[in-house]
């Protein structure tokens, strides 16, 4: 599927999605409300069938936190980057997609551990690497006077 067709297909599924062809991938920013339904559709739509979730990344975007999903279709070989912003920094919640791609369960746990983004409907949301009372080190306002020496 060409980039134009992909953009058209995505806009057809989610009208509010902000989709554009980047230098590497087609990137789309989806509103938080329809996020899970959108992901479900792009996975199950036979023309798109994004069945392989490559990578899940949490990014601190100052006012909000952002989740970035890199997806690939193993049948059509096309790629898509889906981005979703949380509502705010204090109670960041994103719907979990662990029911669609089992691998995301653990990538989401990692994002929860390092960025403090919690995932609704996640089967087993626990900290992964760090202690339960540790901060969220990948947030930009994270302070650790002992382990990080700021220059």
């Amino acid at each position: 599927m060409t980039n134009e067709a992909l953009i058209a297909a995505i806009t057809g599924i989610e009208a509010e999605a902000n989709t554009l062809a980047g230098p590497q991938f087609v990137e789309t920013t989806v509103p938080l409300a329809g996020f899970h339904a959108f992901m479900k559709k792009i996975k199950e739509d036979p023309a798109l069938s994004f069945d392989y979730l490559i990578c899940v990344t949490g990014v601190d975007r100052a006012e909000t936190l952002q989740m970035v999903y890199h997806l690939e279709s193993t049948t059509h070989k096309h790629l898509l980057v889906v981005k979703v912003h949380t509502a705010d920094r204090t109670t960041p919640v994103v719907p979990s997609v662990a029911d669609l791609w089992p691998t995301s369960e653990f990538h989401e746990r990692e994002a929860y551990d390092l960025l403090g983004i919690s995932f609704s409907n996640h089967p087993d949301l626990r900290r992964m690497f760090l202690d339960d009372n540790w901060g969220y080190p990948l947030r930009k306002d994270y302070k650790d006077d002992i382990h990080i020496v700021s220059r």
Binding site: D51, Y52, L53, I54, W101, P102, T103
Partner: peptide
């Protein structure tokens, strides 16, 4: 194969 893809 399906599981391999689903579990990444």
């Amino acid at each position: 194969k399906e599981d391999a893809i689903a579990w990444g």
